[in-house]
Design a protein around this nucleic acid. Sequence first.
DNA 1: GGAACGATTGAT
DNA 2: TCAATCGTTCCT
Length: 191
Amino acid sequence: MKSDFAISLSGAAVEIAPWLLGWILVRELDGETLIGRIVETEAYDQEDAASHSCRGETPRNSVMFGPSGRAYVYFTYGMHYCFNIVTGAEGYGCGVLVRAVEPLEGLEIMRRNRGRDDVSQLTNGPAKFCQAFGIDKNLSGHNLAEPPLKLELGGQIPNEQIVQTTRIGITKAVTQPWRFYVKGNPFVSKL
DNA sequence: GGAACGATTGAT
DNA sequence: TCAATCGTTCCT
């Protein structure tokens, strides 16, 4: 029996990505609570040359092929983690990369984790957000309906406040407009 | 076994 | 503009 939570994320990544804007991430870390609001996402699909899943299932990307509503966390550039929300049907590899959140609670912990004071530099990038929230590979495969990392429905962002554009940092499928962010939000990684 | 590359970041 | 830094994937 599937949970409502998983069902709500079982659609195509390209459809889920803009819908996830405004959702809340609650991280329990060493007895402290960190909260952020998703303000920037990117969709990655199995039929997408830029996606880790485009050449089929491998040990690294297997979580993307599992149930929706799980975390897919990967290590890149020898030093950074990036966090995705798995979407789509089981057996189909796709997900949504969270590129930026707006810090709501636990800012001092985020400052400590990031080693910086400037609020605007705490969570405005996929690896910055992971470092601020203490997210690493141990959380890959985690069910996001449960602590210590929970995804909760927040206030929906009106369509006219959602900007759709091309993705960042990729070299394949560069023209696909599968990046979404909240217009005017200061925590978006890049305009 | 070896090499090329990467959904990034921060400093120059 | 470029170095840091290493796991994953693919080729030999």
